[in-house]
Nucleic acid binder design. Structure first.
Lengths: 192, 192
DNA sequence: CCTATTTGCGTCATCCGTGTATCAGATAGA
DNA sequence: TCTATCTGATACACGGATGACGCAAATAGG
């Protein structure tokens, strides 16, 4: 679109997005003023970068979802057995999801841009699950759409879990990933 | 508190609560005006029954949670084996949760009254799960708090499931209950 | 160092939702 | 029927959030 932003302006955009995540996580109806303050900027500057509230929300959604995609890519899931891939992806996703709790849990894709990234993530997840099914990790007759839905839900719940630690951010993603996958594959019933 | 409401006023209160559920489900930030209109009333009348927006939200929360408790009670869960009880409770809860989607999913208990009902439901659920554990339905070392969390999440997901039917309200609660419990107990993995 | 860009400040207008008050008409219920 | 109660209409005050304007100071980056 326009010319590239200057380095400091770029930093401002980052600061605004991160501040928005923090502030909105605490109060979904927070004002632009509060977000600006949390970013160490003025409301006017925020307005300069994002025409209106809606634009900010959309940018936030796209940014977070892009980070999710990156985290999935970093796990290099296609170069390992499904179970290993599932572990790595889960741990990475938990990290990102923990950082962008508000944005990723209110992920109503009111925009085509956001919807596109979301679609990509969904598709990829189902492919991974299908591979797991072929390798015998999932029941042959398992409904993959339902499984994906459950998987997403477990990811969210794992982060909201009141752990032994006070600070939820300090929970070990690898341990949580193990919990998520174990529950996804076997539920809470006794092991055969 | 005050004297009992007249019959028509009582009906208005019901209409307002039901309208609020419908309207807020579509837009969580909807105005009192919109809610009033949906209830076939004026904003002024809404204000007469609920001093401010917060009061309406709280009344909504208490009402819905009370219906949940009633639904659980109607299942007479203590007079049957844990598995049967679990089925009956799940089916009943799904019915209520489907009617009060918004209210019950944004169940942030900002009030002591709402928190009390919630606490009661939580306690009861864990007790039921503990009974299931004793009867061998759950693994002996299963974390019941985590299991309850997963159970709640599955209930929500089941209602958001895009079924074969267009109308989600038309989904058979018994079939959904079976799906929820099966997933809770065994996950998506192959059966032993 | 010099210029284009960014940012903060003060100020303004406007819209929207909320909450209140009064009065007249309609209705429930005894 | 008759009275207490409920509802609607109109109007007003208030606060908060939004969005836009020009101007001066600070700063990035060639």
């Amino acid at each position: 679109m326009g010319r590239p932003l200057r380095a400091d302006a770029e930093r401002s955009v980052r600061a605004i997005l991160e501040a928005a995540e923090r502030v909105l996580a605490d109060d979904a109806g927070a004002s632009m003023e509060q977000i600006a303050e949390a970013a160490g900027l003025t409301r006017i500057t925020v307005h300069r970068r994002f025409a209106n509230r809606q634009a900010l929300l959309e940018a936030l959604a796209v940014s977070a979802k892009q980070q999710l995609l990156d985290a999935i890519g970093e796990a290099r899931p296609d170069s390992a057995p499904a179970l290993v891939a599932l572990y790595r992806v889960t741990a990475n996703v938990l990290r990102v999801k923990n950082t962008w709790r508000f944005t990723l849990s209110h992920a109503t894709p009111h925009t085509s841009a956001a919807a596109a990234v979301w679609e990509e993530i969904d598709t990829y997840t189902v492919e991974l699950l299908a591979r797991a099914q072929h390798e015998g990790l999932l029941a042959p007759d398992a409904d993959l759409d339902w499984t994906r839905q459950v998987y997403y839900a477990l990811l969210s719940e794992a982060l909201d879990r009141p752990g032994a630690n006070q600070d939820p951010a300090a929970q070990d993603p690898d341990a949580l990933a193990a919990l998520v996958i174990d529950t996804l594959l076997h539920g809470a019933g006794p092991r055969g």
